[in-house]
Design a protein around this nucleic acid. Structure first.
Lengths: 169, 169
DNA sequence: TATTGTTATACTCTATAACTATA
DNA sequence: TATAGTTATAGAGTATAACAATA
């Protein structure tokens, strides 16, 4: 319905390929993160927290596009390993301010190193320039063609998740 | 540790972006498939079956990279809607030969139409040439740089899944 | 009364183990 | 004995509902 009037040039479908590669990347990421006691979700949460320098749980849930109840469990894991700290907000005592600990910063750095190696492995068939091209295309899709959309945070929903929290850019 | 000796040119990381876009595509696909009574898994199975003109459940499980036990449930769904048929192989009566029904072929066509619209929507920020470029890059990653790898089926594991069953190419 | 975080709970997806029927 | 398919079941991941503390 939103598609143009008549004959389009035949376009290859990327969907299945995209999902397949994302899955391969995820499986490999899980493998290398496991020895660090982390799961992909943990890593994303840590990344957002580092980028923001602290966040409420609600804001975190929104950025991660997760249900708030699941954020609780996620943070429980991280807190148990002393990678984050929760403290009550003095302004609104209902809120928890979540922040990285020093150990959290270090663990995150280790994980990022491991993940960079995974990506080199999975995307090994692409040269440097090709990888940059891929990155550019993916980003263009994610931002809906609006390159500089990362400035304003709350563009709502999808766009926000891709840019707002920095972790995806 | 596995990383090269010294300074590489800084490369943007595509992993998170890739996963994010795959998720968006999957969520939208689920929405449009739901009215057809299908889930993404069903569609992939139907696609493989059409491409092969029939398959044993074991071969199907291998191609879909799913556990065999889950294939049973998947086929039960499809059989309940009369989109596929199971019949015993005359050669080896332990095996089931699974084939699309006429209704299955039609339902698959409807679903593909809906999915093409979804992809147009999600990848809307890309022009025709850009989409082809993206497709080429993704395929290169999937096949490990071996473009013509689709000829031989059993290249083993990952590569096979991307090419063997046709659905991803 | 509404909101933040929490707990308990249910539902889906996926994987493991045991069973059957065939080989 | 081994294999194809099936069933039952347990473990993750995710979402809904009710509750406590606070606003």
């Amino acid at each position: 319905m939103t598609s143009p009037p008549a004959v389009e040039q035949p376009v290859h479908r990327c969907g299945a390929l995209l999902e397949y590669l994302a899955r391969r990347l995820r499986l490999r990421s899980e493998s290398v993160l496991a020895p660090l006691g982390l799961r992909p979700r943990h890593l994303v949460a840590l990344t957002v927290l580092r980028a923001r320098g602290g966040s409420t749980q609600q804001a975190l849930a929104s950025t991660l596009e997760m249900d708030g109840t699941n954020v609780v469990g996620l943070l429980n894991d991280l807190e148990a390993e002393k990678l984050i700290e929760r403290r009550r907000s003095p302004e609104d005592r209902r809120r928890h301010i979540v922040e990285l600990t020093e150990a959290g910063v270090e663990r995150l750095a280790s994980a990022e190193c491991a993940l960079a190696a995974v990506e080199d492995e999975v995307l090994g068939a692409l040269g440097h320039d090709q990888r940059e091209t891929l990155y550019g295309l993916l980003q263009q899709v994610a931002t809906g063609g609006v390159e500089a959309a990362c400035v304003e945070a709350d563009t709502g929903g999808a766009g926000a998740a891709a840019c707002d929290g920095v972790p995806l850019c």
